[in-house]
Computed example of a mutant assay.
Amino acid sequence: MSPTPQVETVSSGAEKAKLAAVAVLVIASIAAFYLLGQQDLWQRVLVLLLGLAMAVGVFFVSESGKQVIAYGRDSVREVKKVVWPTRKEATQMTGYVFAFVLLMALFLWLTDKSLEWVLYDLVLGWKR
């Protein structure tokens, strides 16, 4: 038996500083939005969006951001490998689903009415 590999996460001080800067930028952007309460709304929103854009920029420069970008690229590559159904196949499968739902609704309605008849009319003797 081979030993299970240990997963180690290596995080340098610079990476931690980048992520801390992201958090500070987000908090500062939100704080600036509220501290500029006397300004016009468009100015407050502009300050908020600029601060958040800077935070996103710093995040994508960090190793975590690079991993997110790589994951996105891999996801797009996998989606391109998918064999999508033709319009005819999709329409047929949708029809099958609707037919099955209709049959199940009919079955459940008949079951409900049968149980209602058995319980109320035969067992309890209630007449409506």
Rank of each mutant, 00 (worst) to 15 (best):
Y96A: 08
D40Q: 12
L115V: 13
T86I: 03
G95N: 06
K81A: 08
P85H: 02
S75T: 05
Y71N: 08
L115P: 01
S75Y: 05
S62V: 07
L25P: 00
V26C: 03
V83H: 13
F107L: 15
L102E: 13
V24E: 10
A90K: 06
V79C: 04
V68M: 08
V97I: 02
A31Y: 01
L103R: 11
F100T: 10
I69T: 04
I27C: 10
E63F: 07
I30Q: 07
V58A: 00
D74S: 05
S62C: 09
K80C: 07
S114F: 15
L106G: 08
L102R: 15
L103E: 10
I27D: 14
V45D: 03
G95C: 06
G72I: 04
S114D: 09
A31P: 00
F98I: 11
V101K: 12
P85I: 07
V68F: 06
L25A: 10
L106H: 08
L49I: 14
Y34D: 06
Q92D: 03
K66L: 00
K18V: 13
V83E: 05
V97M: 04
A105G: 13
P85Y: 01
V58D: 00
K18M: 14
F107I: 09
Y34Q: 06
Y71F: 01
Y34W: 07
F60M: 05
W117S: 10
T91M: 15
V22C: 13
I69G: 00
L19N: 08
S75Q: 09
M104R: 05
V61E: 14
V24F: 06
V24R: 15
I30P: 01
S114M: 14
K18Q: 15
T91N: 12
L115E: 14
F33H: 00
M93G: 01
D112T: 10
A21G: 15
A105Y: 07
Q39T: 01
L35D: 01
V97S: 02
D74C: 00
L46T: 14
A31M: 08
V24P: 02
D112V: 08
A23W: 04
